[in-house]
Design a protein around this nucleic acid. Structure first.
Lengths: 239, 239
DNA sequence: CATAGAAGATTGTTAGACAAACGGTCAATC
DNA sequence: GATTGACCGTTTGTCTAACAATCTTCTATG
């Protein structure tokens, strides 16, 4: 340690000290962002070439993603990006409802300054994104909003579970690029949640989150069912 | 859809096809059952010798257990059995409350026959275990009771998350073998939950589960705080 | 007594190997 | 013509061996 190190942020070395965690992050991002589509088969050798890592490291990362519910490891057949049925989505939304509601309740009860700022900022960003019809910005600020509530709950276990559910639901988002008129209503819902939390009304915040979640679930399930119908029809025609 | 498929369940081949999943189960059981104590360092070489598997397989299994929150993998220091602070336990119980409540609600709404039977059976077993003061039986039937509610919810995501939280809380149980007079009150609570579910009263089942969870949390936190106090005192004396 | 430094042990990661299992092709059979 | 069965390439599951980076421990030194 020399003179220079005094000026810099000491607790550097985030988590990128190990290749395995970096690999996990890279693959997770690739899946959540839609770089790998749901249902797609992932070949270990390809992942190795793609990332430059060895098979052992790739397999360790895949094992973690499996535990997170983002990939399924079918024995002797290899890893596949998790593909959701309508029933899966229904269950995920159900769990997200109670978790998100609980998080909002805690958040509204504790009202940590950082979380309030993050929530307000995300709401603001969503508004701008909606005005500019910037799809990427809308998605990103939506994620930020939910992440802020999770972090603001002060419950790390809850936060992690919410993130896991959220990541899996993101798979669904990649299936259909549709979020058409939902933005307008969504914006109002986000603002209402933000206000309820900022004002310290836990019960109201929870109820609003439940409504918001149900609305999202209804839309997603509708889209998913239609997509599944499409698939079924196509298969019926082909087979 | 032939004649045979109606009577027999064809899909044999459980899940023990891969060594990695078997390893994961073995290590998980070893941790949850207290064979490895919380905070204990796990040396890869020892695990290899203990299980007869190679380092690669052991590391894959450890990676999964890490994602489940049962071990922490500290970079360049190795895997440790997760040890819980009072705050960790508080957060886990908080999450378990909402998840268990939700599961009971769903269970009471759907009332699948298999779940009702399993719940009744577990309650019965708990009563017998309590009468015989059979510690192992009490623990086992308690686990079975919670597992039955999770399974009865019909929500696989919820079931898995409940199991994860439950496993982590089992670590706490290994810290102190104490569940002294809690059995008597516990028995009544279990019976009440069973009845509420069997009678199809979702709101009541949820409320009872929340109470039950709070009672467990209070006791566990009390014990944990005492244990932590012990540790602090001992460290103060030693250091 | 504190500290620097060397020695040993453990982890992180790679490479290569091999058996078992899977998916598909293609001929033989009913 | 459709089904059965054998063959073959590919991929996975698992192991062994190895090496650099890092942690821990012990020792020697000021």
């Amino acid at each position: 340690m020399d003179v220079v190190s005094n000026n810099l942020d000491l607790r550097a070395a985030p988590q990128i000290v190990t290749l395995r965690s970096a690999l996990g992050d890279i693959l997770r991002r690739a899946i959540v962002s839609g770089r790998f589509m749901p249902g797609q088969k992932l070949v270990e050798r390809e992942l190795c070439e793609l990332t430059g890592a060895s098979r052992a490291s790739v397999r360790e990362a895949l094992r973690q993603l499996e535990a997170e519910g983002l990939v399924t490891l079918r024995p002797h057949r290899g890893p596949f990006v998790m593909s959701m049925t309508v029933e899966d989505a229904r269950q995920l939304y159900g769990v997200r409802g109670v978790l998100l509601g609980y998080a909002a309740r805690l958040c509204a009860a504790a009202r940590p300054a950082a979380a309030l700022a993050a929530i307000a900022s995300a709401t603001e960003a969503l508004g701008q994104g909606a005005a500019a019809a910037d799809h990427r910005a809308i998605v990103q600020s939506g994620d930020a909003f939910h992440a802020a509530i999770g972090a603001g709950s002060g419950n790390a276990v809850l936060q992690q579970m919410l993130a896991s559910v959220h990541n899996r639901l993101a798979l669904l988002r990649n299936l259909s690029m549709a979020l058409p008129h939902r933005v307008r209503e969504g914006l109002a819902a986000y603002a209402a949640i933000r206000d309820a939390i900022a004002a310290g009304r836990p019960a109201e915040a929870e109820a609003l989150c439940l409504d918001h979640n149900d609305a999202g679930a209804a839309l997603a399930l509708c889209i998913l069912e239609e997509a599944e119908g499409h698939r079924a029809r196509r298969e019926a025609r082909t087979g």
